[in-house]
């Protein structure tokens, strides 16, 4: 039996990747299950999905806490979530990154494969959705499933959801990624930021929390405390602002769903400031700017 844990962001298709891998393993005569972690995750937020494969029937229904393989669809997650948590020493990490395996830092030093799946996806699909490309890398790095089975798995799962034409494109992304995957060993000892939240019980709840913000050892809580939640790491494309073209119509400021654009300065010196720590890179500002003063760049 081997168990795979996928770390992705909502919208990157971690769940479909887990299902396609299960389908690929099934094509080769194995039993396989795939399931997501259920939570309030949205597009861009860290999510998890799991695949469990065995020669015999699978009775285990739990989440995967000690995976043999981890698949990370976005290397920026490595700093936010402890992706190598519980990973077996004999395990392997497959990471979407432009870097070499030797430059990747995880909680422990394990075998590691990297592939620049975002570039592959942009080239083959035109969208930064990396779930199919990373499966090509999984096939290359682990050898547990053949690339042909992965292609069949993608055609099965993706074909049902998005149609045969787009599924073929995704299969091509997997094949392209298969060719450019590098295998090596990553560095260990990296500690990612403590993600523990302060969660008091009802009897520990301080009076007035519903109406006042409060500082705790784990950061700000209460009204307005989401300012501590830096959502800027969600983006693939970032807005580049050209103040010379800007006429200060403030449409981008109004439309920004994340309030990431701020007005600074007085009188004629007024200009806009883009707060990349919150910007999710949706591109509404660039799309709506009447003077093309904003461009989205990777």
């Amino acid at each position: 039996m081997y168990e795979v844990r996928f770390h992705g962001r909502g919208g990157q298709g971690a769940v479909m990747a887990a299902q396609a891998l299960a389908s690929a393993a099934f094509q080769e005569g194995n039993y396989a299950v795939a399931f997501p972690y259920f939570g309030a995750e949205r597009r861009g937020a860290p999510v998890m999905a799991f695949t469990r494969v065995d020669k015999d029937k699978i009775f285990s229904k739990t989440l995967i806490y000690e995976p043999d393989y981890i698949v990370v669809l976005d290397d920026k997650l490595c700093g936010l979530v402890d992706v190598s948590d519980g990973l077996k020493d004999s395990g392997m990490a497959i990471i979407n990154s432009a870097e070499k395996p030797e430059d990747i830092k995880l909680g422990k030093a394990v075998k590691c494969a990297t592939v620049d799946a975002t570039t592959v996806a942009l080239e083959t699909l035109g969208q930064p959705i990396t779930n199919s490309a990373i499966l090509g890398a999984f096939a290359k790095a682990t050898g547990l499933v053949s690339i042909d089975s992965v292609v069949e798995g993608i055609m099965d799962i993706f074909g049902n959801r998005i149609g045969e034409r787009l599924a073929t494109k995704n299969a091509n992304a997997a094949k392209a990624a298969y060719e450019v995957t590098q295998v090596g060993t990553c560095q260990g000892g990296f500690e990612c930021e403590k993600a523990d939240k302060w969660l008091p019980g009802y009897d520990e709840l301080p009076l007035g929390l519903a109406t006042r913000p409060m500082e705790t050892p784990e950061g700000l809580v209460g009204p307005g405390s989401f300012v501590d939640n830096k959502t800027g790491s969600w983006k693939t494309f970032a807005p580049i602002y050209d103040p010379d073209k800007c006429i200060m119509c403030r449409m981008c400021w109004f439309y920004c769903p994340d309030g990431a654009i701020k007005e600074v300065g007085e009188g004629d010196a007024k200009t806009l400031e883009f707060h990349h720590e919150y910007c999710k890179g949706c591109g509404i500002c660039a799309n709506e700017c009447p003077k093309d003063a904003i461009k989205m760049e990777r």
């Binding site: 949205r42 920004c256 994340d258």
Partner: peptide
């Protein structure tokens, strides 16, 4: 309605709420 909320990128409702 502060930044840092967890709506999907490009969501329409935070525009309304802000």
């Amino acid at each position: 309605f502060t930044s840092g909320h967890t709506a999907c990128g490009g969501c329409g409702s935070p525009i309304v709420v802000r």
